[in-house]
């Protein structure tokens, strides 16, 4: 997905994990994924560089679709589809 597409993407659920460090954002994503339906989009906000790398790998292992990451000022918006 292109950066432009991601920038305008409306997520069905937003997980703001900017206050935690690794593995906090990943665990927050794990908890929240149970609250959305298959096909819905979730965005994870994280200030943690490790999480940016972890979420795509986690998606692959768990069978979710990693859509991409938008870099904001001081944090990342990481998008995935259940």
């Amino acid at each position: 997905m292109s950066t432009e597409e991601l920038a305008t993407m409306k997520a069905d659920k937003t997980v703001d994990a900017r206050g935690t460090s690794c593995p906090g954002p990943l665990l927050a994503a794990k908890k929240a994924i149970g609250e959305i339906q298959k096909g819905q989009v979730m965005e994870v906000l994280s200030a943690d560089e490790g999480t940016r790398r972890d979420i795509p790998k986690w998606c692959k292992k768990k069978g979710f679709e990693y859509l991409g990451t938008v870099e904001e000022s001081g944090f990342f918006k990481i998008f995935l589809r259940k």
């Binding site: 593995p23 990943l26 665990l27 994503a29 292992k61 768990k62």
Partner: peptide, 10 residues
């Protein structure tokens, strides 16, 4: 604890 978090996520 961090490693356990990773294990829990998976």
């Amino acid at each position: 604890g961090v490693i356990l978090g990773g294990a829990a996520a998976e």
